[in-house]
Design a protein around this nucleic acid. Structure first.
Length: 426
RNA sequence: GGAGAGGUGGCAGAGUGGUCGAAUGCGCUCGACUUGAAAUCGAGUGUACCGAAAGGUACCGUGGGUUCGAAUCCCACCCUCUCCGCCA
């Protein structure tokens, strides 16, 4: 959520930043509601103040021996009643304005950071670096991962349709073991890097989804339980960040670093026909997620660290990848700055997103009310939250199946992964 | 699912209509005493909003209601705990 005070003070600058994302954002109605609300608040609190005093005066009079039914007290009562009527008009009006303001604020995306490149769409994303040799494996003789996977019998899409629907997979035998190995490997690496492992709930309530930014705008993206206020998590970022919702942390507690493996669930509404084959775009997929809660001064540096931690997995698995910095127009709703890691998929001769590392600044912290306090200092500050995949497990499996494919159709297990599996060839 | 208990400040815990943002204890901060520490004594110690400031307002699980006045009374809801049942 954006800071209404900042919008008030620098409406034009905020407007300009928002428009870098593309789309129309008119802050004028918001500002009008805001000034109206504050007007009413001032009036209301003055009336309330008088009303509070009347209450006290009545109490004093009665204690002091006045007749509770006498004229003195009756006059105060009458004034109290008249104030009550006025307040009864103002209160709902103010409440309604506050709701309207909040509703608007909740739908405004984060401002791109100053360092985010300007651009309209993903075309204008900026490549930061490349790692590994993407020429080592051309498309010749390489089966796309879904074909080699079916061939090896390590996953099955058709039967999964029967169980659930399309865009679900069942991993079998070595496929299941490989997925499990990848999860363990990724977690171990991140624990080594200083993250504390969490295994959080994967059903989350509406408040949690609102705090991290999936609600209210993107309700159609998540699966909702019919009879409860619970949703299937689209990413572990949601439960991890919300663990600290409403907290006032000590500055010594920061940075908080968590890694978590969870299944993730996405409805993928509006992506019909895209990536219909394989492990790239499923309704349910596994992911190891990294989350950091940090102080603002350190958040830029922490963002680089987070990205490096995610990159370390690709490097350890010796998968060629590149780092992209998203331009303002391609930035996710809550992100101020974002790097995508894209892994090389030789069958398609393209890089595909396998991790997204975002710095949300105080956007989520403000929604989630996550603050911290510095010892000796007055007041609190909103923390900064960061998140990144370390990594999407299914997509990692896809990358391995292609990049490690031998001409005879065998798939070697990456060296780093061999301690986690009972076989070194699939 | 059934029955019961309960939700008050960092924690414990008092408060059942009147100056209660809330006693008391612990914790924490600062100061005194001390060579230092402990003990002791003194002072302080929630969050947010409005306001240039003075100051004001809100918050005792949440939302309503009664009243001049609600932590306290009434209604609804949520959550937690205990026991029973069921269950991985």
């Amino acid at each position: 959520m954006l800071d209404i005070k900042q919008i008030r003070a620098n409406a034009e600058a905020v407007q300009a930043k928002l428009s870098l994302r593309g789309g129309d954002y008119d802050l004028q109605p918001l500002l009008e509601l805001d000034s109206k609300q504050r007007d009413i608040e001032t009036r209301r609190s003055q009336l309330q103040s008088r009303s509070n005093n009347i209450g006290k005066e009545v109490g004093q009079k009665i204690k002091g021996g006045s007749d509770p039914k006498g004229p003195e007290v009756a006059a105060l009562r009458e004034e109290g009643n008249s104030l009550k009527k006025q307040l009864a008009d103002l209160e709902p009006e103010e409440k309604e304005l506050k709701v309207k303001i909040q509703d608007i604020l909740l739908t405004l995306p984060n401002l791109p950071s100053d360092s985010t490149p300007e651009g309209k769409s993903e075309e204008e994303n900026v490549e930061i670096s490349r790692w590994g040799d993407d020429k080592k494996r051309g498309p010749e003789g390489i089966l796309p991962h879904w074909e080699i996977g079916e061939k090896l019998g390590i996953f099955n899409f058709e039967r999964s349709v029967k169980v659930a629907q399309s865009r679900f997979v069942t991993l079998m035998g070595a496929g299941a073991a490989l997925e499990r190995a990848l999860i363990s490997f990724m977690l171990d690496k991140q624990i080594e890097a200083g993250y504390i492992e969490a295994l959080p709930p994967i059903l989350v309530n509406s408040e949690s989804l609102t705090a991290t930014g999936q609600l209210p705008k993107f309700a159609e993206e998540s699966f909702k339980c019919a009879d409860d206020d619970l949703w299937l998590t689209p990413t572990a970022e949601v439960p991890l960040v919300n663990l600290y919702r409403g907290d006032i942390l000590d500055s010594e507690q920061l940075p908080i670093n968590h890694c978590a493996y969870t299944p993730c669930f996405r409805r993928e509404a509006g992506s019909y026909g895209r990536d219909t084959r394989g492990l790239i775009r499923l309704h349910q997929f596994n992911k190891v997620e990294l989350v950091k809660i940090v102080s603002p001064e350190t958040s830029e540096a922490e963002h680089e660290t987070l990205r490096t931690n995610a990159e370390a997995i690709l490097q350890a698995l010796e998968l060629p990848y590149r780092v992209i910095e998203l331009c303002s127009g391609d930035l996710g709703f809550g992100a101020a700055k974002c790097y995508d890691l894209e892994v090389w998929l030789p069958s398609a001769e393209t890089y595909r997103e396998i991790s997204s590392c975002s710095n949300c600044y105080d956007f989520q912290a403000r929604r989630a009310n996550i603050r911290y306090k510095e010892a000796g200092k007055k007041g609190t500050q909103f923390a900064h939250t960061l998140n990144g995949s370390g990594l999407a497990v299914g997509r990692t499996m896809a990358a391995i199946l292609e990049n490690y494919q031998e001409p005879n159709g065998a798939v070697k297990v990456p060296t780093a992964l061999q301690p986690y599996l009972n076989q070194d060839v699939l």
